[in-house]
Design a protein around this nucleic acid. Structure first.
Length: 207
DNA sequence: AACACGATCTACT
DNA sequence: GTAGATCGTGTTG
């Protein structure tokens, strides 16, 4: 599987957010590697978007959003949860995609005799970072080149719906949240998943 | 230096 | 449906 390139992220944020659905997020914590199929995203698009953290201009926190596409933007919300974003668009245009949902890929799900739901679904940006142990220590990682945090193109095409963004007060008129339904996640056919070769040392199939 | 509040989640009524 | 946890950041003085 190929990694997502900087060109992938250097495009209109809503396009990137939609196309990130079905891609594989990879994160190496100190003791293990986590994989998840991205199933929900939101776009935050520039200074004209009142919900975007960079709407009021460049600050210490939002500086990363003005930088190169493909960098991580991790922030603490409500004093207790972290949220993971990927910076998009050209330099000096502050925008990012918030990763809100994942279908976890576990080695345990490789048992072909198990007909139970193969995926654990993490719905919510805080849950994702809590599970992966992503913190502000992982802010400003270049996911194009990093071995710690990056994305892979599994060539999956998933249907999705478009809704207003969640948890914001301004900008709710924009339909910039993109969601794959749990049903469509579960109905991912095994033959498609067989094409997913995780970049482990043994490089064995997922299923 | 003090203050208000947020791209959330959980528990409880 | 509503409240509370909890703290970094940006703004104001």
């Amino acid at each position: 599987m190929k990694r997502l390139t900087q060109q992938f992220f250097t495009r209109p944020t809503c396009t990137v957010a939609q196309e990130m659905l079905g891609k594989i997020l990879v994160f190496n914590s100190h003791d293990s590697t986590h994989y998840g199929i991205i199933t929900e995203t939101e776009a935050y698009v520039g200074q004209d978007d009142p919900a975007c953290h960079a709407a009021k201009g460049r600050t210490t926190r939002t500086d990363i959003m003005f930088g190169s596409a493909g960098y991580s933007y991790v922030y603490l919300i409500y004093g207790m949860y972290h949220c993971l974003n990927i910076v998009t668009e050209e330099i000096d245009f502050p925008a990012a995609v918030l990763i809100r949902g994942l279908a976890l890929i576990c080695a345990d799900s490789t048992d072909a005799n198990t007909s139970a739901a193969p995926f654990t679904i993490l719905d919510g940006p805080g849950k994702i970072c809590r599970h992966f142990q992503i913190t502000k220590a992982h802010n400003k990682i270049d996911t194009i080149t990093s071995e710690r945090l990056y994305m892979l193109d599994a060539k999956l095409s998933l249907p999705f719906t478009t809704t207003p963004r969640i948890g914001i007060k301004l900008g709710t008129d924009k339909l910039w949240r993109f969601v794959v339904s749990p049903h469509d996640i579960r109905s991912l056919s095994p033959d498609k998943l067989q094409n997913i070769h995780l970049p482990s040392k043994s490089s064995k199939n997922l299923l």
